[in-house]
Simulated scan of single mutants.
Amino acid sequence: MDSLSPQDATAALNLAPRPPRVFKFWGTALWGLVIFVAMFLGQVAVIVYRIMAQGAELSVAGITHVVADGLTISLSVLAGLPMVVLALWVAIRRTGIPFADYLGLRGTSWKNVIIGIVALVVLVGAWDMVSRAAGREVTPGFMGDVLKSAQEHSALWLLVIAFAVAAPLWEELFARGWLYRGWSESALGPYGAILLSSIVWTIMHLQYDWFFLCEVLSIGLLFGYLRFRTGSSWLTILLHGLNNLAATIQTWWLAG
């Protein structure tokens, strides 16, 4: 009978494929920072290009004017998507788990889709009622200016694609895909992962005031719970896109 020498056994172990593994708390957090930086660099590159293309003054006022431009915002949001996907691919490739499996990119039932839409409509409708009762704007004021700016550049269609397609894709892949997956399999567990990933997602929306940040947090908690119950990130991507599309249409309507 043939037998392996110690050297042969060591070589065989070295050639054996590494078993798939999920990043836990710190691995998810550190790679999450890398993914966020990649997205940020992609958006900054677009902003720098637009500043140079417009010949804006290198002053706070000049840069602010370009950054608030509807076309610039649209392009920067779109630029974030490929950067996030690339960084996610690099990170997930190290785990040995298929890209779609790691991020929960799997379908779900129509029943879950309907439940998700109804829950989102009820939640957002409740926030709108509170906003009106408090005498506040239903939509963030700056969004109307962004839409008007995009119209002036004939780029309203691009803004809709950026807000209703690109942003939901990379934000959900990051928050409910990457962060939730790793943190839910750490000591935090699913509910801790839902809460922490929702907080991180809310911090990514600091352009809003405290009221809208609270609304964003509540939506994040809903999306996180649906991700947990259905195992599907596609569901949260769909709901996120519908929410952003409805908010864009509502802002456009109110802005006249």
Rank of each mutant, 00 (worst) to 15 (best):
S3L: 11
L4G: 09
Q7K: 13
D8G: 08
T10P: 02
A12K: 01
A12E: 02
N14T: 05
N14Q: 05
L15A: 15
A16F: 06
R21S: 15
K24E: 15
K24A: 15
W26M: 14
L33A: 15
L33M: 12
I35Y: 09
A38Q: 07
L41H: 07
G42T: 00
I47V: 08
R50G: 13
G55W: 09
V60M: 11
T64R: 13
V67N: 10
V67M: 12
A68C: 11
A68I: 04
G70V: 00
L71T: 06
I73P: 07
S74R: 01
L75K: 00
L81P: 14
P82I: 01
W89R: 12
W89T: 12
W89E: 09
A91Y: 05
A91I: 03
I92K: 02
I92S: 09
R93Q: 14
R94P: 12
I97G: 09
P98V: 05
F99K: 06
F99C: 12
D101F: 11
Y102K: 04
L103G: 09
L105D: 10
G107R: 04
S109F: 05
W110K: 02
K111I: 05
K111P: 10
V113T: 00
V113A: 09
I114C: 08
G116Y: 04
I117A: 13
V118H: 04
V118G: 08
A119D: 06
A119K: 00
V122G: 04
V122H: 00
V124T: 04
V124N: 07
A126M: 07
G135F: 14
V138M: 13
V138C: 13
V138A: 14
T139K: 06
F142W: 09
D145I: 06
V146T: 08
S149F: 08
S154I: 02
W157I: 08
L159N: 04
A167T: 07
L169E: 07
R176A: 06
W178K: 00
S184M: 03
L188F: 12
G189S: 06
A193C: 02
S197R: 00
T202W: 04
Y208E: 11
Y208P: 12
D209R: 08
I219P: 08
I219R: 01
G220Y: 01
L221Y: 01
F223A: 09
G224H: 00
R227A: 06
R227M: 06
R229V: 07
T230Q: 00
G231P: 08
G231F: 03
S232V: 02
S233G: 13
G241F: 01
L242G: 10
N243V: 01
A247M: 00
T248G: 10
Q250K: 11
Q250T: 11
W252I: 07
W253L: 14
G256L: 11
